[in-house]
């Protein structure tokens, strides 16, 4: 797993992550007991719930990094790249959340989708950050990209509570749905807790690498002209 973006820090986190993931899968798929009500379906929740938490964490990091970039005293493209890397991982985790949620719904209620407030808002968040990533791809200088996407990220922070509130008002979570999620036993709470830890390690590992890849991408873009000129000169001297 070692690569050009690895450092002792990422290797340490990477090893911890892999060990954690092995334990997580072993426990989630085999060692943990079936739920009294949901039987095997609860195992999907072990992925679904931590994944949702991490997606939210990732988007918060994006928002904070965006603010850090916009504030003159801490302006640095590293914040911009961190925002981008975190948003990408956030979209990944949000996709996993939606997918596992859908499968869990199929197992528990027989339907792949419900129009309740939680599911709807999650899908909305997913699309919103896809839009953020699209804005990052609009081109221009690194600083233009950084400023543009930072503003978009902060506008997302503004719009998400509005959407959450209006959707919640539109389709309040019904009583029977919260009961259907069941009471969680201690062992399952423990599994979810461990899942959150393992996924957080994975998140940190991913953004450390991804942020460095983005830095290399920016450096390549900056060097692009230099390289082209150097290649031209080489051709000319032959």
């Amino acid at each position: 797993m070692s690569g050009p973006t690895s450092t002792p820090a990422t290797r340490a986190i990477g090893i911890a992550t892999i060990v954690g993931l092995i334990w997580f899968v072993a426990f989630g798929l085999f060692l943990s007991p079936d739920d009294a009500v949901q039987r095997k379906g609860v195992r999907i929740l072990y992925i679904h719930v931590p994944s949702a938490w991490l997606a939210y964490l990732a988007f918060i990091v994006t928002a904070v990094s965006s603010a850090a970039y916009l504030w003159k005293r801490t302006r640095s493209l590293t914040w911009d790249r961190l925002a981008g890397a975190s948003a990408e991982v956030g979209v990944l985790f949000m996709g996993i959340t939606l997918l596992t949620g859908s499968l869990w719904g199929r197992v528990s209620w027989g339907v792949y989708w419900v129009w309740d407030s939680r599911v709807t808002t999650t899908a909305f968040l997913f699309v919103t950050y896809l839009g953020y990533l699209a804005v990052r791809g609009l081109g221009g200088s690194h600083e233009q990209r950084a400023r543009r996407s930072a503003v978009v990220a902060l506008l997302a922070v503004l719009e998400i509570p509005l959407v959450h509130f209006s959707v919640e008002w539109w389709r309040p979570l019904h009583q029977q749905e919260s009961i259907a999620k069941g009471k969680l036993e201690n062992l399952m709470l423990f599994s979810l807790f461990v899942g959150v830890i393992v996924f957080t390690l994975l998140y940190v590992w991913l953004i450390m690498h991804r942020q460095r890849v983005l830095a290399m991408q920016d450096a390549l873009d900056d060097r692009g002209l230099e390289f082209a000129i150097a290649e031209r000169r080489q051709e000319a001297s032959l």
Binding site: L21, V25, G28, L29, R39, K40, G41, R43, I44, I47, H48, S51, L92, I96, L99, T100, L103, W104, R106, V107, L202
Partner: peptide, 16 residues
Amino acid sequence: ETGFVVLSYVVTFGGI
């Protein structure tokens, strides 16, 4: 149900 459970683990970690 096992099918769906395994599918979710495979897609999640395979995808990552």
